[in-house]
Amino acid sequence: MNIVSALSKITNRFRRPQESAKFAKERLQIIISHERTERDQPDYLAALQRDLLDVIAKYVAINKEDVHVELERQEGCSILELNVVLPKLQAE
């Protein structure tokens, strides 16, 4: 056992360490693309989402995650997309 661990210590010494720059690049690409989409959204979007949630919650039991508000910009106009997932309707 001791010999094995001693041997692996020696081989580890000669092994090249992982190239960390690759991880740095991957992590940056993910977080930056995420932050860029958030950056382009107006400040009121979060508040709007909250208010919409409150209104809908008055009538239907929904969770915070069930309301998606997105603003898509196209040339000449912006499209506000509202996506609400309602729970299964129960027969009354």
């Binding site: 190239e19 960390s20 720059a21």
Partner: peptide, 13 residues
């Protein structure tokens, strides 16, 4: 050595 972001990496990002 692969331990620093390259010019090409930063440029691309």
């Amino acid at each position: 050595n692969g331990d620093m972001l390259s010019l090409a990496d930063v440029n691309e990002i």
